[in-house]
Design a binder for these strands. Structure first.
Lengths: 206, 206
DNA sequence: TACGTTTCTTAACTTAAGTGAACGTTTTAA
DNA sequence: TTAAAACGTTCACTTAAGTTAAGAAACGTA
């Protein structure tokens, strides 16, 4: 059972995880750390919680400290999972900037601890501490670069190669994510993923 | 034949195109514009020119004012085109930040006018004019958002749907780009693109 | 202009993914 | 605790993409 003390300990742990991450980009003073803490941005979310639904709008940015969230579309009645965000990965829903209703859902596939911020907070922090904006610029440049490389890799691979590639690059995902969600993430149907895995197993036996 | 006057006129046109683009994000003073012009960043490049080869390194950023550049890999002897950048689109090769040899080629598929900058210039301009960094942050956040949406669309579509989608979203590309380059951009072989197009034509007749 | 190269299309065949259905297992929730 | 729902796998069949090869058209260049 979680006591008040556990809860505070946990919150401090999460803050340290966040500050460790930030320290890779800029070094923060105590004053700056306090400014961040005072924003009250840490959120615990239960497995299965939907953060955003198709048709809704939000102004939240999500950064995963612990756990896993996924984005998915429902197209002709079928769930199509397009992304998983795990520890130290973050995302801004399209609608935050487009101001249009979301075309996709976001939900938690594990109990998850998030940093939830919004543009107002960013403006406030960026105004007070310009190095924050520098960090955001570097981060999104890095993420853009990574996204383009991943997209290149996807385009130039077969489904089987994509699966083997994922096995190398994010082996944890294959453990923590249901098969049918992985399948659409790989651009195929669940049955095809089952078959493809059986095919690989057979190859490795012989 | 291009006279000295033509050349200057052309350069001024290009500068104005760039400043019009920038003005969507931040408004520049004359001083700031002059600082940019003095960097001497405009480059005319002939069709067919290769800007970056596999195994090479560069520190250049490319922004297309006019024309078209493409990125491609050579995998098992085959060219795999993964991206086209046309008017008002820009890219930073992976190696600029990773400092590793490039895994892909970049070349011009038309006579192209580029803005070519490098990290030193960025540091200089960002230092002098902080609003420049704000623009870069917003731009890369927008591009990341766009890239993720495009990737989602790609994952959730069949090759035929991708082609029809491209026909809607970037009809110019289908005109200005060779079929076999388009094919790998759509994640398929040139023969499959030919067949797919024939299939669509047949459908539309009946 | 003529030659060689590149590009695009078509075709026959192979391979793999999509589809629809069945079945056992696991998870969920009343 | 139990019934229902969700999940993963397998199978038979369909559809479309990959492969190999050949030939026609377009292009670039000497």
């Amino acid at each position: 059972m979680a006591s008040a003390t556990d809860s505070r300990t946990n919150k401090e742990t999460m803050q340290n995880i966040l500050f460790d991450f930030i320290s890779k980009y800029v070094s923060l003073t105590e004053e700056e750390k306090n400014a961040i803490v005072s924003l009250d941005i840490f959120r615990s979310v239960k497995k299965g919680t939907t953060l955003l639904k198709e048709g809704e709008k939000t102004k939240h940015n999500y950064f995963v400290l612990k756990g896993c969230i996924r984005t998915y579309y429902i197209i002709e009645g079928e769930e199509k999972t397009t992304a998983f965000y795990t520890e130290m990965e973050g995302m801004t829903p399209h609608c935050v900037k487009s101001n249009a209703p979301s075309e996709y859902y976001i939900s938690c596939i594990e109990d998850t601890i998030l940093v939830v911020s919004n543009p107002d907070m960013e403006v406030e922090i960026n105004g007070k501490f310009p190095k924050f904006e520098t960090m955001c610029r570097i981060l999104s440049e890095e993420l853009l670069d990574k996204e383009r490389i991943d997209f290149d890799k996807f385009k130039t691979s077969s489904p089987e190669e994509r699966y083997l590639n994922l096995l190398q690059s994010r082996p944890d995902l294959i453990q923590r994510v249901p098969q049918h969600q992985l399948a659409s993430y790989l651009g195929i149907k669940p049955q095809s993923l089952s078959r493809l895995r059986a095919r690989i197993l057979k190859k490795n036996k012989s």
